[in-house]
Design a protein around this nucleic acid. Structure first.
Lengths: 130, 130
DNA sequence: TATAACATTGACGTTAACGTAAACTTCAAT
DNA sequence: ATTGAAGTTTACGTTAACGTCAATGTTATA
């Protein structure tokens, strides 16, 4: 059982973040007799999943859905199914984004060459004028 | 000279967007005697640059800076210099992003394989249990 | 006991780029 | 002149994920 500060430090987040996650239902820390939040091993494990999901670009909503499925179906099948499905989607999204960025980069590189050339010309003409 | 609706339609944006651009100083439409905004050729040209900058992922602030430089230095040298500079930066950003996404994708693909395998196993065991 | 550190709740703020809408004015067609 | 469409200004709302802060309570240490 850990305090909110211990957990925040462990995961390099702020206590505020943890409270926020509790607020939106991602985490469910228990309370000591004096109402301080205490995080069980299970919450720590959940937080690991959360941080991982975030790293892969999932929204907290999506992450929540995946995690809740596990709570509901202990065999893990439904969570896995959803996670696999979301994973495929995310892979696709990332692929598309990569393509998009690659195309953009190509355009920008060309444009950059054009502008650099233009600039050199302008500077050449300027030097001539002086 | 065009009305706000004409320009909005031309660029596939809302009149609201154009007013916003005026508000933040990106555009400076003139006013008819009855106070309606009118967009000159110059504003249209500026808007072209704006839309292009947005497409390349520049913030409106960055775009504004580049455009303002042109207004100040008619030779275009300073604008070009800044544009080239920003372009290089943006190319770098895009390259980094591509790398990041490529790595992410690699991880996700692996993870996906692992989870799919696990899922198949779980389903296999489930079928056995039935 | 005193005190500093840390916890709590509640609530407003931040970010960039608009969207929405009310109240009023202008324009163009009939 | 009338009317409907479109323009204006002003101002609040949206989004996701927190940040910030005040007021108050708890904990651990000296």
């Amino acid at each position: 059982m850990k305090t909110i500060r211990e957990v925040a430090k462990l995961f390099n987040v702020t206590p505020r973040t943890l409270r926020y996650y509790e607020e939106i239902g991602l985490l469910s820390p228990t309370r000591s007799h004096s109402k301080l939040r205490t995080f069980s091993k299970k919450e720590i494990a959940k937080l690991k999943l959360i941080m991982r999901g975030k790293r892969y670009g999932f929204s907290l909503d999506e992450i929540k859905e995946m995690i809740m499925l596990f709570d509901r179906d202990r065999t893990g099948i439904q969570q896995l199914e959803r996670t696999v499905e979301y994973g495929e989607q995310k892979i696709k999204e990332i692929e598309e984004k990569i393509q998009e960025l690659t195309q953009l980069k190509r355009e920008l590189v060309e444009l950059h060459a054009t502008f650099s050339e233009k600039l050199a010309k302008l500077k050449g003409e300027n030097a001539k004028n002086e």
